[in-house]
């Protein structure tokens, strides 16, 4: 059974189009490497950059190993707290990916549910959901995130806030992305709901809820996955932007964006490595994910075949 499944995958058009492009295979390998690195960060890092006790100020702002003054103890140098940049990047990647994934999943679930309801039920439901979406679209994503972050910060003590900072980020980034999912799902639903297999389900007597989940949903997932992939890159960037602005994750548990923000302050005093290495990692990650998303969009679009 498993072998059959595997064979079906290896024989599918999607796999075939995947293996045809070296760029896409490269992007997939890079993405996978970064994911794995983030996953096993505690085992391949040289220190725990989140443990204040492990950091020594005496090691602060050390250069990378190939520059005079650098040591193998800190291969990519250290930041102003004495944090090993290599370890900090691995842990930062973790935060960035966790926030990105959770935010996209949140946006996806919300967008799919509202989009399905809007497209399938139509009428008043549709009007209300879509007008809310229109209003939401007039605010830039960053502004929504800042707004939510600001409110939560206002009602919580700084210590409490630090504990929930990641979830606040997820919520605010997710909220800024659901509209795109909802609109796509709604459009696809409008197409699918007039197809005869949906009508057949109605004649059988299935309630709307079951028809939406069992019949319509599996057939609108293609475009949703494409948007999800591209939005993962956007979410990671948004998180970095917010962290860079100082309203993201706390500096004690830096994400890639926080590291870039920290490094930004030392760029002109010559310690370029604090900003450059997290920046490069970020750029590679976002580029690879975007390339995957682009490929997926083309591969799933029958018009481009």
């Amino acid at each position: 059974m498993v072998a059959q499944r595997l064979n079906a995958i290896l024989d599918s058009d999607l796999w075939w189009s995947f293996t045809r492009s070296k760029v896409v295979v490269g992007a997939a390998i890079v993405t996978l490497l970064l994911f794995v690195a983030a996953l096993i960060a505690p085992w391949i890092s040289l220190q725990d950059p989140w443990d204040p006790g492990a950091l020594q100020l005496i090691n602060s702002r050390n250069p990378p190993v190939w520059i005079e003054g650098g040591t193998w103890e800190f291969p990519l140098g250290t930041d102003n707290q004495g944090r090993d940049m290599y370890s900090a990047i691995l842990y930062g990647l973790r935060v960035s990916l966790v926030v990105g994934f959770l935010a996209v999943i949140f946006a996806m679930v919300l967008g799919i549910l509202l989009g399905l309801a809007s497209g399938y039920l139509g009428g008043m439901t549709d009007t209300v959901i879509m007008r809310v979406a229109d209003v939401q679209l007039t605010f830039p994503a960053i502004l929504i995130a800042l707004l939510i972050g600001g409110i939560v910060r206002g009602v919580m003590t700084p210590a409490d806030f630090e504990a929930v900072a990641v979830y606040v980020l997820v919520l605010s980034i997710g909220l800024s992305q659901w509209v795109q999912f909802a609109r796509t799902v709604r459009g696809q639903t409008l197409v699918e709901k007039n197809k005869e297999y949906v009508q057949a389900a109605r004649v059988i007597g299935l309630p709307a809820r079951l028809i939406m989940l069992r019949h319509v949903l599996p057939n609108v997932m293609g475009p949703v996955l494409v948007i999800a992939t591209i939005n993962l890159a956007v979410a990671i960037l948004t998180e970095a932007t917010l962290s860079f602005l100082g309203v993201g994750v706390p500096a004690t548990r830096p994400s890639l964006g926080t590291l870039i923000q920290i490094g930004n302050g030392f760029l002109f005093s010559g310690e370029w490595w604090i900003v450059i290495f997290p920046g490069i990692t970020m750029a590679i990650l976002v580029l690879a994910v975007n390339l995957l998303g682009d490929w997926l969009r083309d591969a799933l679009n029958p018009k481009l075949r």
Partner: peptide, 18 residues
């Protein structure tokens, strides 16, 4: 409702492809 059923025109659209 269960006593009546329908057969549709387009055999390509009337079965859920998934």
């Amino acid at each position: 409702q269960a006593r009546m059923q329908m057969i549709f025109q387009d055999p390509y659209a009337s079965l859920n492809p998934r």
